[in-house]
Amino acid sequence: MALIRYRTMNTAAAEIFYRETVPEVVEGRPPILLLHGFPSSSHQYSGLMHRLGREFHMIAPDYPGFGQSRDVSPPGAFVYSFENISRTIEEFIDKLSLERFVLYVFDFGAPVGFRIAARRPDLIAGVIIQNANAYEAGLSDAARRLVSIPRHDEAGLKELDGLLTLEGTKFQYFTGVADPESISPDGYTLDQLYLDLPGRKAHLIDLLLDYKSNVDAYPVWQEWLWQASLPAQILWGRNDPFFVEAGARAYLTDLPNAELHLFDTGHFALEERLDAIAPLVAGFVNRLPKFVTS
């Protein structure tokens, strides 16, 4: 098994908790920065890190307001938006002195990671995209409805609040999976524990209401993808209730040489298809040019 260290780092907004592998051999491979989704945290990558962490340097932070990260700014000082979270993770990257890395994004990881990449494209050696949307074609009807909810819509806010219940969390974990008995209860139970911490749900409602800012930013991210022409791997649970298969295929417009792998599972593809995904990730990173630090 991989050797994993559990660490914290102080940023202006939060004490960021993160998991970091200590590989036996790196051999010039770029590190992998794993950015988690909703309603999860870095724990969603535990299985992948245990599988690949002896071979690769892997880093998975918890965003402000997620997982084990703790707010350090005065109450109300940090506005929970995707822009602000991306700035905090960018500060985290700089404090770790990460000069170039593979960006692995899932779900909320796209609006966090792609904002950073568009600002600082030289950081990104390659990108792995797992059920992380950047195209309007990838939004299901349910996602389009949720994205359009305004702050003053009481019925809409109630619907968003339902996503933060145990039933809503389990819906994301189980919808579209081929074998429900393969889904460990540990993941969604831990997610819900974090969601139920004081103040967390209000922050997440703010983020869900801010998701429309990501749709507005899709053209910017698409331009970055096209201009950067990066090595890319797309991993997609094709039965995702929010981000549909068309979103995976849309990436090929701007990344025509990307690897595309579709799986008969749902949103949290790693929960059911880790055995298939781990070797694909390893193969992709091993094929990248050797990483040389300055």
Rank of each mutant, 00 (worst) to 15 (best):
A2R: 06
R7I: 03
A13S: 15
A14G: 13
T21W: 12
E24Q: 13
V25F: 13
P30A: 12
G37S: 05
P39Q: 03
M49H: 10
M49Y: 11
R54E: 15
I59Q: 07
I59V: 12
P61I: 10
P64T: 07
D71W: 08
D71K: 03
A77Y: 03
F78R: 01
V79T: 06
Y80S: 09
S81F: 14
T88R: 06
I89T: 02
E99L: 03
P111K: 02
R119S: 04
P121E: 03
A125W: 10
N131I: 05
N131C: 04
A132P: 05
S140I: 09
R145Q: 07
E154T: 11
E154G: 02
K158Y: 04
K158I: 07
K158P: 00
E159W: 09
L163Y: 14
T169P: 11
T169W: 11
K170T: 10
K170H: 05
F171C: 01
S182P: 00
Y188N: 07
Q192R: 10
Y194D: 13
L197K: 11
G199D: 06
K212I: 12
Y218M: 11
W221H: 04
N239H: 15
N239M: 13
F242E: 04
A246G: 09
Y251G: 00
L252M: 00
T253R: 08
T253Y: 02
E259Y: 01
H261A: 10
H267P: 05
L270S: 08
L270Y: 03
A278R: 08
A278S: 11
N286D: 15
